[in-house]
Design a protein around this nucleic acid. Structure first.
Length: 603
RNA sequence: GCCGCUUUAGCUCAGUUGGUUAGAGCAACUGUUUUGUAAACAGUAGGUCCUCGGUUCGAGUCCGAGAAGCGGCUCCA
């Protein structure tokens, strides 16, 4: 089955689900029912009824009846006015609204309709005067198609969940119930997908975060404010360490900025107008200053740049800071480490001349490539451009040239890329890196952004070769993104089996009985002197000894549950032979006492 | 913030139509056992059944409000 057949099949299932719902609740009002990744959904509003997941068996049974009846999908056309009449007669107010938009503006995509067009009259340039309908048995729906030939040819499906969704994605609109289903050509593919979901559940960072004792939360501290345990803090330090190491080797210098700041800084940067409602406000009891917890670091870095005169010879100036920002996100958006109110960025800012943009962007691309290579994640790039709305600052011409330069750098880097309008930051276009994890999911983590707005707003300058004043360009970049989000992804990517360099506990020595205590002491003396050099330099070895009065089986079971990458088993036989039985995920081998340090350094 | 679901021991979970003193496994603690490749044995302790309010002779169980977690929507500098 090819992509278009799969699409038609999923789309047909959305109709069949709506049909089943209509049979069960004749007063159901229907919104839209598109195809999404792996399946489909339909937005439905049944007045006075909340469809729950308990109803899925009932709905699925009704869907099966429709499928068994094998109705043909019959296409028909009406004029738009006839269509509106049909929808009114069928008591489908949402369809009436869609048809009216088609008539006026030729589209039903809410995003394409500007504020004035939503629900009022616009000019009819792109108006559609004929619309198509599809009928299968007792169900007819406004629809562009295409569909499967008949309801019998729809493959394997399963209803997954029901969730609230705003009509046409607008927060001010009423909320409908969105019924999600997944669908594949064959039952085997559906089973494979279900297995992938189970695998994802088993790797869930919130589950592993608890099991591996990486982070915790407390209602006394607050929602979206995770705290990291000793083990989790090692992950943070090692991840930030490697990110910093890569950029330091490319000329970045570490800086430090405070966590609270006068509101004035953000008024000047433009963030206050755009994100003011998401700042945590702080009051001074000594001065009249209005303060805020910092939500980002770029304005501070501009002030370090501006602290002294800069020459064209000083450029580029590169600052790097791993620091925690605070954003008062809406509570419903928070969850796990993925979306938090305290987020730690590995944030850097380059101040450079226009002619240096390409090289600097290129260096940052190289950093990202190298880092994600080490992490074992495939990268591709989204070039995020502005759209025609007024959500952006700065001159249009600057945007054009910046977007072109970003594209050139990305093309040169050889990274796979795609372009998307409307995803830029308000101050400039960006490169977003999409990293693919071990089970094929894509995550947005690293970013490189061009900014010509803040240098202007803060009046940043340098003296050029002619001795006149020039304005630098600013490049924002984070390679891990936020440590919290990165760790949520990386924990799930590795399933908690961290590679040696970052594993909180790298080696655990499991003793068989007390007779080997003196030999274990010799081993720990060696281990405490081991320093690993790859991929992170000067990485001291983190090891523990399990010499409890327990069976070897139990010690192995526990060490494996903790996902300790290297387990040393030490018993009388090992002591006798002056060796250690080393267990790793790839098997067990004997390593001579004299070779232990070399063995670990080579891992 | 909005819609829906969930909340019982440190963890994972049982708990019938509202009915005596709320259970299990693991973890913890104590004792015995000194153990060779994924759980030795026995015992002890551990509860604001998320919180507040209501209905009832009686609430873990029913109702209301709130909190937190989860699935989405919206948002994401």
């Amino acid at each position: 089955m090819d992509e278009s057949q799969l699409y038609a099949m999923r789309h047909s299932l959305a109709h069949i689900m709506a049909q089943a719902v209509q049979r069960l609740w004749s007063e159901a009002k229907f919104g839209v029912g598109p195809v999404v990744e792996n399946g489909f959904y339909y937005d439905i509003d049944v007045p006075g009824v909340k469809i729950s997941e308990d109803d899925f068996l009932k709905i699925e049974a009704e869907m099966k009846k429709v499928i068994e009846a094998n109705y043909r999908f019959e296409r028909s056309e009406k004029t738009t006015d006839e269509g509106i009449k049909w929808a009114e007669d069928a008591k489908q107010p949402y369809k009436v609204e869609l048809l009216n938009d088609l008539k006026r503006a030729g589209t039903t995509v809410a995003k394409d309709l500007n504020k004035d067009e939503m629900g009022t009259i616009a000019d009819g340039d792109a108006a559609v005067d004929k619309v198509s309908f599809y009928t299968d048995g007792d169900f007819t729906d406004l629809c562009r198609g295409p569909h499967a030939e008949s309801t019998g040819k729809v493959g394997a499906f399963k209803l997954m969940r029901v969730a609230g969704a705003y009509w046409r994605g607008k927060e001010t609109n009423p909320q409908m119930q969105r019924l999600y289903g997944v669908a594949f050509a064959t039952q085997e593919e559906l089973d494979t997908y279900s297995k992938m979901l189970e695998e994802a559940k088993a790797r869930d960072h919130r589950k592993l975060g608890k099991e591996l004792d990486l982070y915790t939360t407390s209602t006394l501290v607050g929602v979206g404010l995770p705290m990291f345990t000793p083990r989790g803090t090692i992950l943070r330090e090692k991840a930030a360490g490697i990110s910093n190491q890569l950029r330091k080797s490319r000329g970045f210098e570490m800086v430090w900025t405070p966590n609270i700041t006068k509101k004035d800084l953000y008024e000047k940067s433009g963030h206050w107008a755009k994100f003011g409602d998401e700042l945590f406000l702080v009051k001074s009891q000594e001065t009249s200053d209005e303060m805020a917890l910092k939500p980002m670091n770029c304005p501070h870095h501009t002030q370090i740049y501006a602290s002294k005169p800069r020459s064209y010879r000083d450029m580029p100036v590169r600052f790097l800071e791993t620091t925690t920002d605070y954003r008062d996100e809406k509570t419903g958006e928070l969850g796990g480490l993925n979306r938090v109110r305290s987020l730690t960025q590995d944030d850097s800012h380059v101040f450079c001349r226009k002619d240096q943009i390409a090289d600097e962007v290129n260096g940052l691309l190289e950093c990202a490539k190298e880092l994600y290579g080490i992490l074992g994640m495939k990268l591709r790039v989204r070039l995020s451009y502005r759209d025609d709305t007024d959500a952006y600052l700065g001159e249009q011409a600057l945007w054009g040239s910046a977007q072109a330069q970003l594209k050139e750098a990305v093309t040169k880097s050889g990274l796979e890329y795609f372009e998307q309008d409307g995803e830029a930051a308000f101050y400039g276009p960006k490169i977003d890196f999409m990293a693919t994890d071990a089970i094929g999911r894509e995550h947005q983590l690293a970013t490189v952004q061009i900014d010509f707005v803040q240098p202007q707003r803060f009046g940043l300058e340098y003296i050029d070769e002619q001795g006149s004043v020039a304005q630098p360009i600013m490049l924002h970049s984070a390679t891990l993104g936020s440590l919290e989000r990165f760790l949520s992804v990386y924990i799930e990517h590795t399933g908690g089996w961290f590679p040696l360099w970052i594993a909180p506990e790298q080696v655990r020595i499991l003793t068989i009985n007390d007779s080997v205590n003196d030999y274990v002491e010799e081993i720990t003396t060696i281990l405490s002197e081991v320093v690993l050099m790859k991929p992170l330099k000067y990485n001291e070895l983190r090891f523990t000894t399990d010499d409890r009065n327990e069976s070897l089986g139990k010690k192995i079971r526990e060490a494996t549950a903790w996902k300790i990458p290297v387990q040393f088993i030490v018993g009388p036989k090992d002591k006798e032979a002056r060796e250690v039985s080393v267990r790793t995920q790839s098997g067990e081998q004997k390593v001579a006492f004299d070779q232990l340090a070399e063995y670990l350094k080579a891992l």
